[in-house]
Design a protein around this nucleic acid. Structure first.
Lengths: 125, 125, 125, 125
DNA sequence: GTGGTCTAGACCACG
DNA sequence: GTGGTCTAGACCACT
């Protein structure tokens, strides 16, 4: 069963987008297996404190991408093809790092200052 | 006159938010002076390919923060006070770094791997 | 439920202003109760043939005046406190009468002629 | 020369509309003759404290309706056909009175109360 | 279904 | 030309 313990809402982007991104990142990280069970709409909605329709929308789009499939009643399962995991992981890693580098440079933060910040925050969380 | 050459729309977040963030980053980086001219709504909307109203909304919110001053019929200018620069710079640096660290951890990227990526991309761009 | 059957768009003034004025007039006339249901944005927009956003703007301003209360996802209701009814009624009566008197004088209509017109039309409608 | 002494801005409607309405009402009242001179754009703009472009827009629309004509340099003159004055005056009188009656009834103001208000305000202004 | 927000286009008043 | 406002349509999150 996929855990959402580490998931937190913090963006300006739509909630259903954040859920989709989270699941994709977890798959990319390898922390979600193939054929793993997905929390029910109701359960996840209660856990995250958002509306069931919002969960429904996220799941629906993931289904259309073939990342989760509904089977045997209401339960849904992931459908992770092994060869794509590494590709997605790499894409997400690179794009995220590029964005941070870009931001730091734009803010005029030097390499050393960035390094210190990185170390400090890596420990904290 | 503030340049938007390096600005690109790439997020899921609202366009006016991206514009606000961009200007704040530029201010935090010190690349926007006090009393510098701001592109007109029409000019910037044409450059970015969005509606003038979207620019208007971003500028209006920046004006409420005291970062821009506008007079009807006249051009608009920045109003950058020294003490706000540091505040904005710190806020943006922390939030950006936190988000990257969070993403890296979620992707299962280790500390050393993350730092190597960072160093490589820092050189490239 | 507030009825908009008698409402007609006829002014040069903004539509949302006409809606606000209409509701205030109805409140002043006592034909709108406290805690009475307000038509939904979509329903009223379809009825009047205007955009839902225009209704939204009118309702939003009435909410800021404390005349309407809204909760996301739920229906909206009036919030008519006894002391505001008299204030609104007086404001509307005075401003409307002043405008008529001004127009009559500008048109060179004498006092008696004006009054005769008034009496005649009062009976007709 | 047309006088604008009694003109005051008070509506929600556009300024150029108010100017047009004022002139039409004055013509209807017979207080503007045929071939009477109209104030210059510059002069009227200074008198009313509004932008010359706004005056220009009002005059332009009045020209298109044939109510004023430009002659001999920059000066403009009214062009009032005698037979239309009475018709316009009647239309304006009736519509204004009807609107007041409608408002008073909607506010639940009785015939006697309306009469008192009318008398009081007629004297005041 | 509900209310709320974002983006868009046209118009108004001003320098 | 400038900034500001009004109306419009699509989308998001919630009951």
């Amino acid at each position: 069963m996929i855990s959402f313990e580490e998931f937190i809402l913090d963006d300006d982007s739509p909630i259903y987008m954040q859920i989709i991104r989270y699941i994709k990142q977890r798959i990319a990280a390898g922390s979600i297996e193939d054929q793993e069970e997905v929390p029910s709409r109701r359960a996840l909605s209660a856990l995250l404190g958002v509306n069931p329709n919002t969960i429904q929308k996220a799941y629906h789009m993931l289904e259309e991408e073939g990342i989760i499939v509904s089977r045997s009643g209401a339960k849904s399962f992931t459908c992770v093809r092994a060869d794509t995991v590494e590709r997605i992981r790499w894409e997400l890693t690179v794009s995220s790092t590029l964005q941070w580098v870009k931001t730091m440079k734009q803010l005029g933060v030097g390499r050393e200052e960035a390094w210190e910040l990185f170390e400090k925050m890596w420990e904290e969380r």
